[in-house]
Design a protein around this nucleic acid. Structure first.
Length: 875
RNA sequence: GCCCCUAUGGCGGAACUGGUAGACGCGUCCGACUCAAAAUCGGAUUCCGCAAGGAGUGCUGGUUCGAUUCCGGCUAGGGGCACCA
């Protein structure tokens, strides 16, 4: 049959326009059908979309289209994570202002996303840099402030000297700023904090309720929160009198069982006692300064040897007043964790051992590993941190580690030191408060005013939003808001005195911590959310994004949702019921003769006799094919989605993005793969054409009887439908695609066999198959599917078509091919009816020629029959 | 150092809760159509072997009638965390 080729470049814009004109993807909040909220992480408007976006949004779109077909009222919105440093950097470089740059990027990227044919409700589009969005964020901040969820405190911060901004601990990678890459310095600043650490336990406990989150992400968050149970123990300082400010040192330990192995106490250089001693001791002051200079860089820390300074102080062992322990200030003790002081047990902690060995403090093993003789067990330079029985520990001897911990805990909590219990059981968390202050222009202004007499005064609600001024100077470094002539000077709302506006703006993670709630009613003018609407839509049923946000964005969003609940904006704690983290898009890298990176577009791949060679297009010089890596500008191994869509169409790009690799793993972008996807689109187009001429008219009634051939076609349809559906539910898009291809392959084969003019029952079966295939295809290649749908004689959009119901009677096989094993090796197979009992199956199997031959007259010892599965004969 | 994940043909990968290993695709080879090419169609493609047959899911041991799947030990690759006491 003659078929014209399908032309995606013509069809795609046509259908995109039709969808927009008919407002097919507009979602109404008052739609009575059950809701389904699917959301992909919104993009930063960097300029152009990249292949990672294509993959992310292609996945979300499959989910959205599937749920829509299944009868759900689907919310599938899109917006822009629009504040952030790149806009400011661009402003400095190109003398454009950040707003102009950002909105221009948004316009470009919106156009690109629209060319992908995503089923998005564009009427809900938001940009976080828009005052209509950040107005509510400022309001949320003030509500949190009032509710005691926000705190202003002096703290040591990570200072990025290049971007002139503060970084969260999480934004410091190997001692360098995650964006600028500059070496991070330490500075004391007064900062705004969201008190996320107060919610540590709740954030930890609730992880167990997030059943549709990847186990990996939950584990990463658990480790990040870092709960540890231990004991705070006070050691009395030798010779200190009642008048002394420091009479004891409190340490935090998770190993109180090793107390009899203690050889030293170590204080952080930032510990109060260290500072006090340093004030009187220039040598110690010099040591502390040296520790600070080492900084936080990974190289420094990794190469730094354990160093300490003997303060000369001695403390008494909690269980023996005559046992004196030296007190050091040491470079490896962190002030932020626990109490900023530790007791060192060299035998059972590697760091303590390294330190003790350096300063000749010795070690006493107090936990003996099972099977070792305590009399000969020695520690030299490898500490033992495993389980065992206590030794050299007086009343603890013979106990397990766990029992010894409990015993020490009991005794010390009951003991008295200077009128208080000597120890208290404590739970420590690694998670620290979320510093949100940024000394930047392009962010949401923190809506407070600093007044000399009234202190920190919130900006009154009727004066919100505090809008970013547009007349700013990016000439100087630092925060332009700080240099602004008029913006920062305002009258105090309370006493009218001349005051100073807060010039810090918020961390952009704040912006992305509630956008999913705003999408539920994005035009709402007087509140961040309408709780009724937001509670209807939330939680997000399926959230999809990159693994790189496994900790920061997701943890902050979880906290922010709790804070919004506490202030009456939302009624739930967990914003994302289902989470899926997709893998990256990777590509080969190419290096030219000169050692410079080449883009895939600059290279031609030739394959001769199985060996692949790359040749630079510019000069025909051979190029080196390098490692397959994440697409990045620096390696130049990027493929522009526009180029692909322009050459093959969006459907092909979407199809390829979802085929081959499991969605949570990296996918290798390859030209051959794209061509394969494009070829398949044409194949479907031809197949639908053939089916259309073999099929009954749309909506025709089913005949009463089906021939064997017609029944076989109906089986194909229902079996593949069922398998596609099962794989869709698991978000296994690669196997969804494999099943769709199997289905169409089988239909091609069925049509080939059809020789006589189609009978009515067969024509019905082909109609059913064609409609089903088009609907399956529509999830991934929606434009092609519309074209097919039209060709199949349907008048309305395939986007409105209902998901075909699986008929179990057809989906189920009533005969199965039964393999027969002899001693676990397959020797034969036979067709077996579903209703045969085991005895019949056994008899049938033993009667097979191949089985009789393989048995060589031996009598079976045992015959295992697994119904519908397998027969195994044991001899 | 600790924690986690992964390992299957030439390549990406499939295999439901232990039941025919290699689905589906990419590539390659052969063939058809064509003056030719592209496109398309048909066939082959885990390895060894002409075949019968044998081996085979990183290595190694175990449990089982039966192991890619479960358990122990190892190796390699990837990711996360980290002077966190």
């Amino acid at each position: 049959m003659m078929n014209e080729r399908y032309n995606p470049l013509e069809a795609e814009p046509k259908w995109q326009k039709a969808w927009a004109d008919q407002e097919i993807f507009l979602t109404r909040n008052d739609d009575p059908r059950p809701k389904y909220y699917v959301l992909e992480m919104f993009p930063y408007p960097s300029g152009r979309i990249h292949m990672g976006h294509v993959r992310n949004y292609a996945m979300g779109d499959v989910v959205a289209r599937y749920r829509r077909a299944k009868g759900f009222n689907v919310l599938h919105p899109m917006g822009w994570d629009a504040f952030g440093l790149p806009a400011e950097n661009a402003a400095r470089q190109n003398k454009t202002d950040p707003a102009t740059w950002t909105y221009a990027n948004i316009a470009t990227m919106r156009g690109q996303l629209k060319s992908m044919g995503l089923s998005l409700d564009w009427s809900r589009e938001i940009a976080t840099c828009d005052p209509s969005y950040y107005k509510h964020q400022q309001r949320l901040f003030l509500d949190f402030l009032k509710a005691g969820l926000v705190e202003r405190k002096q703290s040591k911060v990570n200072w990025d000297p290049v971007d002139q901004t503060v970084l969260a601990n999480e934004q410091v990678i190997d001692g360098r700023a995650w964006r600028s890459g500059a070496l991070v310095e330490q500075r004391e600043l007064t900062q705004w904090f969201l008190k996320i650490s107060d919610s540590s336990q709740d954030l930890l406990d609730s992880l167990d309720t997030l059943e549709r989150w990847p186990e990996k992400v939950r584990l990463m968050q658990k480790n990040w929160i870092g709960r540890s149970e231990g004991l705070r123990v006070r050691f009395a300082i030798d010779g200190a009198g009642p008048k002394d400010a420091w009479r004891d040192i409190e340490v935090f330990t998770t190993r109180p069982d090793t107390l009899f192995g203690a050889k030293f106490i170590a204080l952080s250089p930032d510990h109060g006692l260290s500072k006090e001693l340093a004030a009187k001791n220039p040598a110690l002051a010099a040591f502390a300064a040296e520790c600070a200079r080492v900084g936080t860089s990974a190289e420094a820390i990794e190469t730094a040897e354990k160093k300490g300074f003997d303060t000369g102080l001695r403390v008494a062992h909690p269980f023996d007043p005559d046992w004196k322990i030296p007190v050091f200030v040491a470079n490896f003790v962190l002030i932020e964790y626990g109490t900023g002081a530790i007791f060192g047990c060299p035998a059972h902690d590697q760091r303590d051992l390294d330190f003790a060995n350096a300063y000749g403090l010795g070690n006493t093993p107090v936990v003996c590993p099972p099977g070792q003789d305590p009399a000969t067990f020695k520690i030299v330079d490898v500490a033992f941190d495993g389980d065992g029985d206590l030794v050299n520990s007086r009343f603890l001897d013979g106990m397990t580690v766990e029992a010894a911990k409990a015993e020490v805990n009991k005794r010390l909590c009951a003991a008295d030191l200077f009128g208080r219990p000597q120890a208290t059981g404590t739970v420590n968390y690694r998670l620290r408060d979320w510093g949100i202050s940024r000394q930047r222009y392009w962010g949401c202004p923190i809506p407070v005013i600093h007044c000399e007499s009234c202190g920190v005064v919130p900006v009154p609600a009727d004066q919100l939003p505090v809008i970013l001024p547009t007349d700013v100077d990016f000439g100087a470094t630092g925060n332009p808001l700080d240099h602004h002539a008029t913006w920062k000077h305002v009258d105090c709302p309370v006493c009218a005195r001349r005051s100073r506006r807060e010039t810090d703006t918020m961390d952009t993670f704040v912006d992305s911590s509630w956008y999913f709630a705003r999408f539920t009613d994005p035009a709402l003018g007087d509140a961040a959310t309408d709780p009724k609407t937001a509670n209807h839509w939330l939680p997000v049923d399926q959230y999809i994004g990159g693994i790189e946000h496994a900790i920061l964005h997701l943890l902050y969003s979880r906290y922010f949702t709790r804070a919004m609940k506490a202030t009456g904006h939302l009624g739930l704690k967990e914003p994302f019921a289902g989470l899926f983290t997709q893998g990256m898009v990777v590509h080969e890298t190419y290096k030219g003769a000169g050692g410079d990176w080449l883009t895939p577009a600059e290279v031609k791949i030739e394959s001769t006799g199985g060996a692949r060679r790359a040749v630079a297009l510019a000069d025909n010089a051979p190029a080196e094919i390098g490692a397959i890596e994440k697409m990045s500008k620096s390696k130049r191994n990027v493929v522009d989605p526009d180029d692909i869509i322009g050459a093959y169409g969006a459907d092909t790009a979407r199809w390829f993005m979802l085929s081959d690799s499991p969605p949570d793993r990296d996918i290798i972008w390859s030209d051959e793969g794209v061509q394969g996807a494009s070829r398949y689109a044409q194949q479907v187009w031809r197949l639908i054409g053939d089916l259309a001429s073999a099929a009954l008219e749309p909506g025709a009634a089913a005949p009463n009887e089906f021939s064997a051939a017609a029944t076989a076609v109906r089986r194909l349809t229902h079996q593949h439908l069922q398998r596609v559906e099962q794989n869709l539910e698991r978000l296994r898009f690669n196997t969804v695609i494999a099943e769709i291809r199997k289905f169409s392959n089988a239909l091609i084969e069925a049509l080939d066999k059809e020789t006589e003019a189609a009978a009515r029952d067969a024509a019905f079966a082909y109609r059913e198959a064609a409609d089903a295939l088009a609907i399956l295809i529509s999830l991934i290649m929606p434009h092609l599917a519309e074209e097919c749908w039209e060709r199949l004689g349907h008048a309305s959009s395939i986007c409105l078509a209902a998901w075909p119901a699986v008929d179990e009677a057809y989906a189920r096989e009533d005969t199965v091919l039964m393999p027969v094993q002899i001693n676990g090796r397959k020797r034969a197979e036979f067709m077996c009816a579903r209703d045969w009992d085991n005895a019949r199956v056994e008899k049938e199997a033993l009667g097979l020629d191949a089985v009789i031959k393989a048995l060589e007259g031996r009598a079976p010892k045992k015959i295992v029959v697994v119904p519908q599965r397998i027969v195994n004969v044991v001899v």
